[in-house]
Design a protein around this nucleic acid. Structure first.
Length: 473
RNA sequence: GGUGGGUUGGCCGAGAGGCGAGGCAACGGACUGCAAAUCCGUGUACACGGGUUCAAAUCCCGUACCCACCUCCA
């Protein structure tokens, strides 16, 4: 079977046919670095990370571009509020975003272009649009340049909307526009804006409109035509519609497939600072580990709306620990020395081939875990390990292999935790030896007293065929 | 007004005409000194009302409710 992908433009699942055999060019609209990222922001990154991993697994050479919007109205406004230069805010938030991606093992893209680094490319594209009669300098003498939606007959094709059915932009500044739906390619510098926030252009000093950056950067790094373009559902309109219009109006075929992920909401509403319901990644990571959060996010389909709840998150974490326990049992966990190779189960391959069907893939994962446990229970260590190796291979594709060095938290906190664990282990050693001796002489009262005392301290002791094992509750 | 999506068992979450995806929880059993872990087993779930069909959670018609986008949004 071939890999199939749901394409927003055609509203159906289609075979993935790359423009260049064996190669896949991906573009993901990254984030505007204006505040600390919440879990919803990370969904597109995780989704494209899985896409990238799956394509690579299937033998494609992948070029993956994920941009960063580092200049826009919000950044300017927030920076002003906080008394910071806009670039300082953008830069600080970019570091937060990088940390969040790293904490969830989202592999870096091939290249991560920033809008501010691509003004010349944007100016070139704008000039070409003017030349072709699809854009015009504002008629009010400002440096604004607008895209002329009426000049592009297929405007609205991505989201199937007719220009005349669209609501006119209520809050958009209509000055100098031929049609209220025309959108800015270049925004003139305004009084009170920092001088560092504008660049020279043939039409006057200003800064890029929101949409033009993606067209310019996708064109630069992936060429006039590329395979998959993605982002959150909210970007379909206007952002992606406009990107496509301006790119195609400039003679570039642009994306072949459009991939949009659904929202993660809390309390039925999208996350937003103003609603006070943002689940900032750094806070969620105080509750569960990064690998558990990633598992939770990967276990539902990218096109399904997810209602985030801590209960569901913790259920998922419990389920994932079961998988990890199986790996530990077989010596294939985080500390394993070598990774045996294994084929992916056919059902798993079929699941991911079908529009990245991660829920079905996770079901196969669980089935395989159960099988491995059954074999191990029966003492068939070799076959159990074989199944375990398949589990590792499946986890790896999803970016969930516990042995992936990416999960090794860096910095002092992790080192300290390792030191504490080792200290506890040596202290517990004597107690557990005492308990073992009591059990051996069938003095279960003493054995249970020790277990209860340790439990009161927040440590659970389990007896396994290989001796007692302890863990923090 | 236009465009698109949704409503599935105690909870989460797949599926898209015919065997109950999977997980969490619960209950029973095996194992265990007792537990834990693991394994085996246990559920008459598809918003509502009609219809089509041998067969509908799935298709059609209608109704209700929810959500997203319509130029700030992951």
């Amino acid at each position: 079977m071939t890999f199939r992908l749901y394409d927003t433009a055609t509203r159906g699942v289609r075979d993935f046919v790359p423009l260049v055999e064996g190669h896949a060019g991906l573009y993901l609209c990254g984030l505007t670095v204006q505040s600390e990222p919440h879990v919803g922001h990370l969904r597109s990154g995780i989704n494209f990370d899985v896409l990238q991993r799956w394509l690579r697994h299937r033998g494609f050479e992948v070029t993956f571009i994920r941009n960063v919007t580092d200049i826009d109205d919000k950044i300017l406004a927030k920076a002003a509020e906080q008394g910071l230069p806009w670039y300082a805010l953008a830069s600080a938030m970019k570091r937060e975003l990088d940390a969040a991606y790293a904490a969830l093992n989202v592999a870096p893209p091939t290249y991560e272009p920033a809008a501010t680094g691509h003004v010349p490319e944007m100016l070139e594209l704008i000039a070409e649009l003017i030349e072709r009669g699809h854009a015009y300098a504002a008629e009010d003498g400002s440096a604004d340049v607008y895209f002329d939606v009426r000049s592009w007959p297929s405007y609205g094709e991505l989201t199937r909307q007719g220009i005349d059915d669209m609501e006119a932009a209520g809050d958009a500044d209509p000055r100098g526009k031929r049609d209220p739906r025309d959108f800015a390619l270049w925004k003139s510098a305004k009084d009170g804006e920092p001088s560092t926030a504008s660049w020279p252009s043939p039409w006057g000093r200003g800064r890029p409109g929101w949409h033009i950056e993606c067209s310019a950067m996708a064109g630069k790094y992936l060429g006039p035509a590329f395979d998959v373009h993605g982002g959150g559902v909210d970007l379909r309109f206007p952002h992606h519609e406009n990107e496509q219009a301006q790119s195609r109006a400039a003679g570039r075929p642009f994306a072949t497939y459009w991939m949009h992920n659904a929202w993660i909401t809390t309390a039925g509403e999208k996350m937003s600072k103003s609603l006070g319901n943002s689940l900032v990644v750094s806070e969620v990571l105080e509750r569960v580990r990064g690998i558990e959060l990633r598992f939770y996010m990967v276990a539902s389909h990218y096109r399904s709306h997810v209602e985030f709840s801590t209960e569901a998150l913790e259920d998922a974490a419990v389920g994932f620990r079961r998988v990890e326990q199986l790996l530990d049992r077989l010596g294939l966990g985080a500390d394993r020395e070598e990774t045996p190779t294994a084929e992916l189960p056919a059902a798993y391959v079929e699941a991911l081939d079908d529009d990245l069907g991660t829920p079905a893939a996770v079901a196969v994962l669980h089935d395989t875990v159960r099988e491995a446990n059954r074999l191990a229970d029966a003492g068939d260590h070799d076959r159990a390990r074989e199944r375990g190796a398949a589990v590792v291979a499946m986890l790896d594709v999803l970016g969930l292999d516990p042995a992936d060095p990416a999960w090794r938290a860096s910095g002092g906190a992790a080192d300290r935790e390792a030191a504490l664990t080792s200290a506890l282990d040596s202290l517990l050693g004597a107690l557990l030896a005492e308990r073992d001796a009591a059990r051996a002489s069938k003095d279960f009262a003493t054995a249970d007293t020790i277990r209860d005392r340790v439990k009161a301290a927040g440590i659970e002791v389990e007896d396994t065929p290989d001796g007692p094992r302890w863990s923090l509750t």
